[in-house]
């Protein structure tokens, strides 16, 4: 692609966003909408700047929960997947319960977890982990079972041990699947953290962004509410982009999915 269209590719969505923000601000000003109903982007930006010490602390709290949950999801999901791939019986015995955990809405389980687990951070972490681990588990299981059949025969021909087949064949074959799951899990861990914070925040405890949204709602500080919302979105975009970069760097030399980007 030549330079001009590539620039346009980035410029176009940016200009659309700016136009929407400008239109929003103009409407709010023209109809004199009170800020506790709908604040304009300028008011939201001002709230973001003024409340930055408070909001940034909350941002860090939420981000910490989300990233720790993602780390736990990678560890537990990945290890379980390897275990499942080693034994069909273990998979048969446990996989249905992983599905149960996945399909039960986290909003419904979160209050229970908050009652059972005294430590709020741990409870939040557990909620976010439950939401995030399934895509990693299911994708990695699929990936571990997707190694080229002929390559598996070749490994057998040369007398590869189970460990060699896992390490040299099945794990690398599973990597693209795992990374796709990781990208989904990244977004989900943030959603899980926010949902759990909402449930915890409704009970009066919390310090994350979701709690700030609740608090701002009670106090009718709608610009701050919008500012917190914008931060959550930005967080989600940043996690998605960072994991996308990891995916690209790990796969660019060999995987078809990275083919288009090299040109």
């Amino acid at each position: 692609m030549s330079a001009a269209p590539r620039l346009l590719l980035w410029l176009l969505p940016a200009l659309t966003g700016l136009a929407v923000l400008a239109g929003w601000e103009a409407l709010v000003r023209h109809f004199a909408v009170p800020p506790y109903v709908l604040p304009g982007p300028v008011a939201v930006a001002r709230a973001l700047a003024e409340d930055w010490p408070l909001l940034s602390a909350s941002l860090l709290a939420t981000l910490r929960i989300a990233l720790l949950a993602l780390l736990a999801a990678v560890t537990v999901g990945g290890l379980l997947a390897v275990l499942f791939a080693q034994s069909r019986w273990v998979e048969r015995a446990l996989f249905p319960y992983a599905v149960v955990l996945q399909v039960t809405p986290i909003v419904a389980i979160a209050p229970l977890i908050l009652i059972w687990v005294d430590d709020v951070t741990l409870a939040l972490l557990l909620c976010a982990w439950i939401v995030a681990f399934f895509p990693i588990l299911s994708n990695t299981v699929l990936g571990l079972n997707s190694a080229d059949r002929n390559l598996e025969e070749l490994f057998r021909l040369y007398g590869a041990t189970r460990w060699q087949a896992l390490w040299l064949l099945r794990l690398p074959a599973a990597l693209p699947f795992f990374l796709a799951g990781l990208r989904v899990a990244g977004g989900l861990s943030l959603i899980g953290a926010v949902v759990a914070e909402f449930v915890a925040g409704a009970g009066g405890t919390g310090s994350g962004l979701a709690f700030r949204i609740l608090e701002a709602g009670y106090q009718l500080r709608i610009p701050r509410m919008f500012a917190a919302l914008a931060l959550i979105s930005a967080c989600g975009i940043a996690i998605f982009a960072a994991l996308g970069l990891v995916q690209h760097l790990l796969l660019r030399r060999w995987h078809e999915s990275a083919l288009g980007r090299e040109g």
Binding site: N150, E153, L154, L168
Partner: peptide
């Protein structure tokens, strides 16, 4: 030694 119909290489290596 065995040579398959497809090259059957490890794409990541």
């Amino acid at each position: 030694g065995f040579v398959f119909q497809d090259p059957t290489l490890m794409p990541w290596a």
